[in-house]
Amino acid sequence: MKEEVLIAGFGGQGILTMGQLMANAAMYDGLYATWFPSYGPEMRGGTANCTTVFSDEEIGSPIAAIYDTVIVMNQPSLERFGPKVRKGGLLIIDESMVPIRCHRTDVTAIYVPASPLARDAGIERAANVVLLGAFLGIKGKPSVQSVENVIRDLVGAKRPHLIEPNLKALQVGIRIAQERTSAVQA
């Protein structure tokens, strides 16, 4: 089992954090994991992206040519990284930030209104956590329990009052992904 994930969006959307939460949770599950942030001039102010790989075997490259899953939180990232999903792979799109949809028919594309859902969960900035929930809802790995523990350990260390809203955002993401995948499959 190996999962290669690329996450992209604007700086400040929690792209890098989402990747780190995922890598940490994979480690909590006893898996190998890597997280690698993007380089280059886009590091500041512009777009941000990172890759997370987790596997039950030792990981070689922290990057790949094509990915099992791409999660995008803005339109430019969809244009740039949409083509990088492998055939039959998963594309998770923050539909509140991406007005123009993906035209690929050879991948599973899930649209998640991450920002409104996060707002409903009581923490508007946690759109990234909603999307992470969506990923978990579909992939089942890392385990929800591990992600919740990571949120408790990392978020809770500095801001304990944000644990509950984040856990709620995660659950909302899991639920909507499951609803929407069944819709896609139907």
């Binding site: 780190q20 890598a23 480690m27 190998y32 994991a33 890597t34 997280w35 690698f36 942030p37 380089y39 990981i59 922290p62």
Partner: peptide
């Protein structure tokens, strides 16, 4: 190198 320097791993 810059990849290993900035990469997170267990």
């Amino acid at each position: 190198d810059a990849v290993l320097g900035s990469m997170l791993e267990p």
